[in-house]
Amino acid sequence: MSLYLDQIRAIIWKDLLLELRTRERIAAMGAFAVLAGVLFNYSLDQARVAPQDVAAGLIWMTLVFGGLLGVGRTFYLEAQDGAMEGVLMSPAPKDAVYLGKTLANFALLFPVALLILGVFWLFFGLDLGSNPGILVLALGLGALGFVALSTLFAAVSSGTHMGETLLPILVFPLLVPMVVYGVGVTGRIMVGRPVEEVLGNVRLLAAFALVALAAGAVLFRFVVED
């Protein structure tokens, strides 16, 4: 078990170190988050549309689109010089490789999710309600479910000639429940509804993330094995 955990840690260490050196994905996701917030700010007539009414949907869509920019390239550096082939020829179980890459992607996406929340708070003048912790929890669970699915499908799309362009087509339909639960939590908390009213959706977000992680761990080997 300790070897299994160390193999997962090795994948996370390697992915985060590569990101630290290249800064490709975090820069793309961060810039997208800020630019999307700015553009949405100017695209809505706030005299007719209350930001509080639409911000939840915009936050989650920014997370999904911005996240795809980063996660979509998760296998790009692996493809260079056949590095992924080397990893797959090591004794590391395929599910450990998947979990390592997924958790590394989560470590990159979660700060971006917080950045998105901050950007919308700044530009839309949002009231984050009396329980911003629940918002952060919901975004964290949503980000985990998102990376669990999109890492798996990034492996699928990286093996096709369509590459990253195929990823949204594959993954968007499966993200509908996550977006529905996430928008439900975010919207209600931001208009000051009690926490008890959103706990069901938070649990559903957690269940979605766990099911996506388990499915990804089981299915990843069928995607990457010859």
């Binding site: 390697k14 170190l17 590569l18 550096l77 010089d81 056949g82 590095a83 080397g86």
Partner: peptide
């Protein structure tokens, strides 16, 4: 003939 190496490590 592939090195299985990460160029940025």
């Amino acid at each position: 003939h592939k090195g299985f190496l990460y160029a940025h490590l």
